[in-house]
Design a protein around this nucleic acid. Structure first.
Ligand SMILES: [Mg+2]
Length: 274
DNA sequence: GCGACAG
DNA sequence: ATCTTGTCGC
């Protein structure tokens, strides 16, 4: 049973073929908890992927079903680069996606700020049909198409991207931040508001306190109390950056609130459907 | 089999 | 994420 046919390049766009089966047709036990989300209309979608010429891919690898989605993540995870540094001054972009209530379209936004001043340099957005349901662990397949379209509309290339979601703090070490980083070939940092997986010890109460996040004995991220009296952020490597530098980047992007400025502005912009 | 579970 | 105003605590 196929959800999507493979993405096929057509001219200057990536065409994602028609959904050949309703999500409701699925009965995969492992995903039974999301049956409520599986009622999706049969539609055909075109994702304009006007990525910079040098970065245009022949096609965006796309799974035909949930099992393939997980397999693709395991495969792509090996391509993630977990080292590299971003030095001040630099441009940091925040990326987020919101579902517009009126029509279910994904509203992806990107806001770029200059560090260390944190003034806004550029904003871009895109409205793209969302066809993949939310399944913990498979979030990138839901948000990636719209985010890539929004990024293709930027005029200035950011040096690093802060993503609303996990990076390597993921059961298969391939969260949304990793997927976006790999497709954009840019440094990305996973900056999630809550935990997906991994365990961590007690955090100090002061802003700046951290705790290691580990899974299977591996260090996969850092819980960071970005603001006092607030729950911590879950920071992890997305792509082309070290965990240590990822945490530093998040700290350099804070302006008194729990969420880094670029990410917070992207979030607000997405919710306004702009 | 049961509990957990980014947005 | 979303349903949604006031309210409790700093
Ligand atoms: Mg989000």
């Amino acid at each position: 049973m196929l959800i999507f046919s493979f993405a096929v390049r057509r001219g200057n766009a990536l065409r994602i073929g028609r959904i050949s089966r309703l999500f409701a047709a699925y009965s995969l036990a492992a995903y039974s908890h999301v049956r409520q989300n599986l009622a999706m209309p049969e539609t055909t979608t075109t994702v304009n992927a006007r990525l910079p010429r040098a970065r245009l891919r022949v096609s965006l690898p796309w799974p035909a079903d949930f099992k393939q989605a997980a397999a693709l993540q395991r495969d792509l995870a090996s391509q993630v680069i977990d080292f590299g540094n971003v030095h001040t001054p630099y441009l940091a972009a925040g990326a987020d996606m919101h579902i517009r209530r009126s029509d279910g379209m994904g509203i992806a936004t990107v806001v770029t700020v200059a560090v260390p001043e944190l003034h806004v340099v550029e904003r871009a957005s895109a409205a793209v049909p969302v066809e993949f349901p939310y399944i913990p662990g498979l979030l990138s397949f839901r948000e990636l198409p719209a985010l890539l379209e929004a990024f293709s509309r930027l005029t200035v290339q950011p040096d690093v991207v802060l993503v609303d979601g996990q990076g390597q703090c993921h059961p298969r070490r391939f969260g949304l931040a990793c997927h976006l980083g790999l497709e954009l070939d840019l440094p990305t940092v996973g900056c999630a508001k809550s935990r997906l997986t991994g365990s961590f010890g007690d955090l100090g109460r002061d802003a700046g306190s951290t705790a290691d996040l580990e899974l299977d004995g591996e260090l996969i991220g850092t819980a960071l109390r970005s603001k006092e009296r607030c729950n911590p952020l879950f920071v992890s490597v997305g792509h082309k950056i070290s965990l240590q530098n990822a945490v530093e980047v998040v700290e350099q992007n804070l302006d008194g609130y729990k969420i880094p400025r670029a990410l917070r502005l992207a979030h607000t912009m997405a919710k306004s459907n702009a």
